[in-house]
Design a protein around this nucleic acid. Structure first.
Lengths: 162, 162
DNA sequence: CTTGACTTGTTACGATATAACATAACAATA
DNA sequence: TATTGTTATGTTATATCGTAACAAGTCAAG
């Protein structure tokens, strides 16, 4: 399933597939790169995958602690940092939170739609935006290393409710 | 001076103009909208305008306190919130910091270049970026209310140094 | 079965942000 | 000019987010 075909978080979909699918691809990817998806890291990813809402580090930590992992902030931050570092999760700065990446392994520049109604976060293809940003950068000689694109607003369902 | 013509923060420029210029336009804008650019708010804006670096709320607070304003966090956060709310400043989420808007009053959707070398922050020209995001949003029925686009990397000067 | 790299865990602290409430300034009247 | 409703300022206190520094455990390579 390519990025363009992936159902968006907002759309109705069989969520269990999101989880198993992404998890499987994550494992492949990690193995291919000689990285270690250790128990904490894997569990952290599973936790993020349980919903399309972004989770704060402390929420993830609480869940990890329940499962017998460490109880202190660095435990969560390190696991999350690993996931972000290797493209298995994204950091949503607007929310001081993290969300599982829905397209691990694929080259993609993520753009996020954050619904202020239902708190769901959808990862949209942001190629166009990134390209526009790249043009602007080139024009002024700036070298982009990381790019964060985040839009807050209302998803289709929450627009109706409002 | 239109957005496209405004010198970028990274480029050499007479910075005193940035400050006086923007401040004057800010006052016009505020008056036109019946808002109140009170002493704290005005001073907070001046402080942000002193450089093109983004400042943390606590840094701004310290400066405000020196000038006889309140000493507690809400003092700074409220002044900054006002500035952001009315387009006189922007919040750089990646840095947990704030930067004066260089184009107050003009409709513009801010995109930022954040130099990790010198910590300067430039507001990128180009509505092309926002347009691309708007397209993506329309495609999935999302209604954007706020948009954050932040690129971290190296400005021209810092690329040479590296 | 040791070495060296990495991972996990802890304590302790620092940085960022907001809630809740009291007081003061202001604007528009009566 | 008193009164009243609104907005702004300031405070205390606390919530939330994030990291530095160090100790102990794991594990593959030699």
């Amino acid at each position: 399933m390519t990025e363009a075909e992936t159902p968006l978080a907002f759309a109705e979909h069989d969520h269990s597939c999101c989880s198993t699918d992404v998890l499987a691809r994550a494992e492949d990817m990690v193995r291919a790169q000689g990285l270690r998806l250790t128990p904490v890291r894997r569990r952290a990813l599973e936790i993020l995958l349980e919903s399309h809402q972004a989770m704060g580090a402390y929420d993830v930590l609480a869940r990890l602690a329940e499962d017998g992992f460490g109880t202190q902030p660095p435990v969560a931050y390190r696991a999350l940092e690993f996931l972000v570092e290797h493209g298995l999760a994204h950091r949503i700065r607007r929310l001081n939170a993290f969300a599982a990446c829905m397209h691990p392994g694929e080259a993609h520049s993520p753009a996020f739609f954050i619904c202020t109604g239902c708190n769901q976060v959808a990862e949209a293809p942001g190629g166009g935006v990134a390209a526009a940003m790249g043009d602007a950068a080139r024009a002024v000689g700036f070298r982009i290393e990381r790019l964060n694109i985040e839009a807050a607003g209302l998803c289709p369902a929450c627009q109706e409710g409002a």
